[in-house]
Each structure stands twice: as structure tokens, then as C-alpha cells.
């Protein structure tokens, strides 16, 4: 199933658990650069970017314990 993914930068801690989980799921290694979600941090400004390879599986949201990433059931892409 594809999920709609939402990112709330004000809740993001920059722990990068989403990137780690994603790369381990799809590349079988822990590699930030291979993740389909990329968190960009510049000072206190946080952004999330989903790459074209993102399958919207929602695993990143499942493993976000800060509530910055959430998923909802939807066929609509983010």
C-alpha cells in the first residue's frame, strides 16, 4: 500500500531514524545517502525531501518517534 506522508519540521529532532530505516529496508545497509527520504538541516531550519525512488511504504513514519513524520491511508501521492 502507498501512504500519504506528511512532515512537520517543528517536531523533527534530526535523529535521521527515517533515513536509516529506509536505507536498511531498500539497500540492506545503513547509508544516509541511499535513503529515499532526505532530511536537510541548516541551523534551526529542517526540511524533508522524498526522492523519486520513494515507494511511500510509510516505514519512515512508523519509525519516527517524534511525530514529525506521519502517514495516512491514501492512494494519493504526497
Amino acid at each position: 500500500m502507498k501512504y500519504r506522508l506528511a512532515y512537520k519540521p517543528e517536531k523533527c529532532s534530526g535523529c535521521l531514524q527515517c533515513q536509516l530505516t529506509c536505507s536498511f529496508m531498500f539497500s540492506r545497509v545503513f547509508q544516509l545517502s541511499a535513503a529515499h527520504i532526505q532530511i536537510h538541516i541548516k541551523g534551526a531550519v529542517y526540511r524533508a525531501m522524498f526522492t523519486d525512488q520513494c515507494t511511500q511504504c510509510g516505514l519512515c513514519a512508523d519509525n519516527c518517534l517524534f511525530g514529525a513524520l506521519t502517514k495516512s491511508k491514501s492512494e494519493v501521492t504526497n
Binding site: 517543528e10 523533527c12 529532532s13 535523529c15 535521521l16 531514524q17 534551526a44 518517534l65 517524534f66
Partner: peptide
């Protein structure tokens, strides 16, 4: 408090901005 920040992989995050 502006935001809480975490070391890589930490689900608690005890650092501060």
C-alpha cells in the same frame, strides 16, 4: 525552547536549541 534535537538514531533527544 526552540526545538529539541537528537543525536543520530536517538528517539529521546536530550539536546536543545
Amino acid at each position: 525552547k526552540m526545538r529539541r534535537v537528537a543525536c543520530v538514531s536517538c528517539p529521546v533527544g536530550c539536546k536543545d536549541v
